[in-house]
Design a binder for these strands. Structure first.
Length: 633
DNA sequence: GCAAGGTC
């Protein structure tokens, strides 16, 4: 035996961290089959840690069932998927097999969640094939900090097959229903020669399709919205303390006009009530992935997919912590003061940081905890120059946001005075609302949505105010806007569609499939996406309703709790979806007919748009050419 | 050519 212990982590960064926490200065870096690994002394023996890259194995159907044209998609419900090696994962298998020969004890240091447990079972499967006498121990830690790691390596657990089986069952169910529904939809339009370009298909998925439904639902709500006229009477009042504007709303034009003449003829009003209430605005809770993505969309003008990609780069280069996390509370073992101290000379916030360090601070705390990763926080203070030079301007936006969000979570509340005055003129009531910022608090370092002063004068009940001006405005109620990405992310979270790491992908998949587009930060269905969502809803609503994913999840939890066997539950879930499949299959002609229409619109329009765009491009190129030539002369 | 979930 060469190694007393071989430690397998879910990713390289964790393998490296474990080595440094356990091995101190004895760590030696090496490569096994091209995979980075770390040798060190621990527990009186030479040990080695290595990271895989998430899952190593995946489910797929046996080859003969992947011939779309000769296999009835319905058959997939009766075929057991097999485990295959993931693309690019073979080097990890080779490395693990090699290490299996060089130790007798393997410590499974994967993330503390069901996916991590599933990966642990993949590792065990691979390694025990190479060496059946291996002993496996599970290290369970909820943060990659020295304290948590040392604690986890004192008290090992047993691998928990129920947890792993929950993940494996989800994989099997998702593959089966995804593949069967995607195939029946795709084949139905292909049979009709339905404008589907080569290599494209019509996909269905238990996450992507409910996401589409949410986007389409909003479009239908807009269309069904009944606009209504209403009337706002705005009155400018003068008091000894200052001028302010109150308003009253009417549904009816004649009543509004009547009110206007009353206001004009009386010409003054009495303060019926006045309120000046201070309220605290709490700083945001510690940052998780979905919140970062939604703030990216709202404040930084970045798409969720882009935000996450940038965050990953910043993480890989040591500027921020691991960006895929649900957690919104700092683990007690994270040294916030050390991180804060790094920022005492940063971007004009130095004075603020020094004040916090001097006065002391208490971090905000959210409710979510994925038990695997801490919230996202900066791990290094870096200048704008440095970040822009290395990763570009967009990366600076993300880094600066992470840093400022972190500082905000340690900051004091902002204090706002909310103001409200009601003025009576005869029997009419006019309301005025205002606000005054009393103390900026965390907004001093978090300049993204700073409340603005819009104060009212300080008046007492019974005071008389004079009418300076009265204006009647006709307005129309407006339909809701198309969904924004930030709203969609919030809805996905509410319904439990996708995970922190995958939500942006489900949005992206729909865009890729031409089911909806993003325009001015709003999500607009294409005729194809709309047809798909509507016709599925009309045939089998269960396939598109957003609750579907949450219901699957709560069933799968029973596997993790050991209340039901995975085989039994997978069988039950597949039977349910088979009945949906049969319902859809009965109506597939009708559905396909509509889908062909949608495809026609999407792909033909794209063609004409593309030729349009290329013509435009050509002419602009011509223009550029001429200006360049001019410059030369 | 399918999904969703890890990770890069």
């Amino acid at each position: 035996m060469i190694y007393g212990y071989v430690i397998v982590a879910e990713k390289n960064s964790v393998a490296r961290a474990i080595a440094s926490f356990l091995g101190g200065t004895s760590v030696k870096r090496l490569q096994i089959e091209g995979v980075p690994a770390y040798e060190f002394n621990w527990n009186n023996s030479r040990s080695l840690s290595i990271g895989v890259s998430g899952h190593i194995l995946n489910f797929d159907f046996p080859k003969e069932y992947n011939k779309w044209n000769s296999i009835d998609p319905r058959q997939l419900f009766f075929i057991k998927p097999i485990l295959v090696t993931r693309e690019g994962a073979y080097k990890y298998i080779k490395a693990l097999r090699q290490l299996a020969q060089k130790t007798s004890t393997v410590i499974l240091a994967l993330d503390a969640d069901v996916e991590g447990e599933a990966i642990a079972f993949e590792v065990m499967r691979i390694m025990s094939q190479a060496n059946p006498s291996l002993e496996f121990k599970r290290a369970w830690f909820s943060a990659i900090t020295r304290t948590d790691i040392l604690e986890a390596f004192k008290n090992f657990r047993k691998p928990n097959e129920n947890l792993a089986n929950k993940a494996f069952s989800r994989m099997i169910v998702d593959l089966t229903i995804g593949a069967s529904f995607t195939r029946i939809l795709t084949l139905s339009v292909e049979k009709r020669n339905g404008f589907l370009p080569k290599g494209k298909f019509l996909s269905y998925g238990p996450c992507q399709t409910p996401v589409l439904y949410l986007v389409v639902k909003r479009e239908l709500e807009r269309e069904n919205f009944k606009k209504k006229k209403y009337y706002v009477l705005r009155v400018k009042f003068e008091s000894p303390e200052g001028v302010f504007t109150g308003h009253a709303t009417f549904d009816d034009a004649s009543k509004a006009n009547e009110a206007l003449s009353v206001v004009k003829s009386i010409g003054k009003g009495i303060v019926a009530s006045s309120e000046y209430v201070t309220v605290n605005i709490q700083p945001p809770v510690p940052l998780n992935t979905v919140y970062l993505e939604s703030r990216g969309s709202l404040f930084l003008n970045l798409r969720p997919k882009e935000t996450l990609a940038i965050a990953e780069t910043l993480y890989a280069n040591g500027y921020i912590s691991y960006p895929r996390t649900e957690t919104t509370r700092y683990p007690p073992t994270l040294n916030l003061k050390n991180i804060l101290s790094m920022f005492s000379e940063w971007e004009n916030t130095g004075w603020y940081v020094k004040k916090l360090l001097l006065k002391g601070f208490k971090p905000t705390e959210g409710r979510e905890d994925d038990k695997a990763h801490p919230p996202i926080y900066p791990t290094k203070a870096a200048s704008k120059n440095e970040i822009v030079r290395k990763f570009g301007e967009k990366a600076w936006r993300v880094y600066e946001y992470v840093a400022r969000h972190f500082l905000a979570t340690l900051s004091e509340d902002a204090i706002i005075e909310k103001q409200k005055i009601i003025v009576n003129i005869d029997k009419l009531q006019f309301q005025a609302e205002g606000r005054k910022v009393v103390y900026l608090g965390f907004y001093q370092v978090y300049p993204y949505s700073v409340p603005q002063d819009d104060p009212l004068p300080y008046l007492l009940k019974g005071e008389e105010v004079r009418v300076l001006e009265a204006k009647l405005e006709e307005r129309t109620t407006q339909p809701p806007q198309y969904l924004s990405e930030a709203e969609l992310l919030a809805l996905m979270k509410k319904y439990g569609i996708g995970t922190d790491a995958t939500m942006q992908e489900h949005i992206h998949t729909n865009i890729e499939r031409k089911y909806f587009i993003v325009k001015n930060k709003r999500l607009i269905p294409t005729p194809l996406g709309r047809t798909l969502a509507v016709s599925l809803y009309e045939t089998v609503p269960e396939l598109v309703l957003p609750e579907i994913r949450g219901r699957m999840e709560s069933k799968l939890v029973k596997i993790a709790n050991g209340e039901v066997s995975p085989e039994e539950l997978v069988q039950e879930m597949l039977e349910e979806f088979l009945s949906y499949y049969d319902k859809l299959a009965q109506n597939i002609d009708k559905v396909a007919e509509k889908l062909v229409e949608g495809l026609k619109k999407v792909y033909q329009e794209e063609d004409s748009e593309a030729s349009h765009a290329s013509a435009k491009k050509k002419s602009s190129m011509k223009r550029r050419k001429t200006t360049r030539q001019r410059k030369k002369i």
